[in-house]
Amino acid sequence: MSTATATASASATGSPGASEQSQQRPTRKRRGSPVWYAFLGPPLLLLLVFVAYPTVETFRESLFRRVGTREEFVGLSQYSRLLTNPIFWKALGNTALLGVAFLVIVIPLSAVLASMLNRLRRGATPLKVIYFLPQLTSSVAVALIFNYVFQPDWGLLNGLLHRVGVDSVPLWLADPRYDFTGSRAAVTILAVWAGLGYYMLVVLAGLQSIPVDLYEAAAIDGANAFQIWRRITLPSLRPTFVFLVMTGTVDAMSRFSDLWTLGGPGGAPARSLQSVVMLMFQTGFESHDTSMAAAIAVVFFILVLGITLIAFRALLAREFREIRGSRKAR
């Protein structure tokens, strides 16, 4: 079914609702009319076909093995194969390491820069536009440019290092070691560069939603700038940080495009850049082992869901009440 037919069917079923209304009194009771099911029908069908079915199918496929043209039930053996595979653990480790490194750098950095932006009297808008520029560029394009920025001999970064007199420049993307100048460090720099603008915008929105009265009250009580920042700004930003950590963790878990552009599905060099999704992609569409790829997809799903729920429970339960409270107040 295409968009056009879905739209047409929704509008077609909308009209009987209108004619029906002439017989019934137009009261609140009419809200119970079947027109709502006509509204929800087509989108629900799309969700069933393109979300619910494939999700269930992923779980099912992970329990089967393809033998020629038929499928054979193998229980959890795909999972035991997966969980004993060092390549999987390496991909999971890379994903976690890159995610943590990214968040640990980007959140404080964006908090500092957004606070500065917030205090700026003039010219905040052009700066916002500039900081957001990389975020709007696709990760593929960003990765492509950074492939050259990190080129060891003449890339922009090492070129600038040469310029300031550094002789032994890092190899960056060519160096698969766990190192502050290796491939993982390079893609972390890339991610911070690309993501900073978005994180700054969110922190800035958080800063601007802090009521001015709080600052005025603190100033009247004689608090100094640091005390105000420590006692008012930081606690007020807690929901913002929680939001960023949660969404940032899920984004980091599903990292794919930039790493794929730089290292291919295998995450070259030496699988140092292979993320979980890249391994899933490689297993499913290069090795054509769909059952194993499905098992990776299920583990990935459980991890993302687990992170979301744990984060929600540990951090958000309290904030949620506060956010709702502040929404009502506004």
Binding site: T55, V277, V304
Partner: peptide, 8 residues
Amino acid sequence: PFETRMIP
């Protein structure tokens, strides 16, 4: 997540 259901 989209990645969970992309294979089927």
